[in-house]
Design a binder for these strands. Sequence first.
DNA 1: TTGTGTTTTATTGCCTCC
DNA 2: GGAGGCAATAAAACACAA
Length: 214
Amino acid sequence: MSNMSEEKMLFSSPLSSSSFYSLMAPEGEKRSRRRRKKVKAADDGGGSGGEGRKRRLTDAQAKFLEMNFGEERKLESGRKVQLATELGLDPKQVAVWFQNRRARWKNKQLEDEYLKLKSLHDANLVDKCHLENEVLKLKKRLSESEEEIKRLSGCSSGGVAGGGGGGEGASPSSSSTNTYQPAALGEFGVEGEDLMYETEYTFSNYIMDWGYLL
DNA sequence: TTGTGTTTTATTGCCTCC
DNA sequence: GGAGGCAATAAAACACAA
């Protein structure tokens, strides 16, 4: 019948013109519209095409329009008429083509934006997963350290001071002479530093102190 | 060949701007 | 109020698998 179908999909977007927007647009954003009855294109027999049916543009016409669309998304009426005469088309056809092309372009923009946001979102998910893993590991380490402290202070309170109401409540203000008590930290100027540092210091120094006591 | 899905062209109705 | 833009949609044209 014709040879104009090869490049049909050259500029087409993957989703049909209305489907993507319908998918993306919030429900309330759509304007309510009365459903109209379509009036068939009149068999005017006139116009540049000669038939009353849809006239598909030739590849050359489409390419030329595409080129112009690349330069400017909207047409001034003068330009529209000029283009129409150059292409042997009705100015209305040119206007419609630009209108539809803008719609496709907008859909493509939306789709690109969606894909960009989606990949960003996916990357964030992976990041979140890593961070959650990290938190779990740190929590585990913390509880292990606490266990160790408990275990060791249990040992020392039994063997050295005897009083003081157990390791957990050991206070720097205690009158005990126990050298590994937190009060001793003051010697090194770390009183009130962050927990992690204090914990590590206490533990390693406890080993030393314990050895010293023995 | 035919049924089905997609793309393109065209229409309609509403909205905004001048 | 008319022109032009846009969203929604109809329908022709087309592609393609079965």
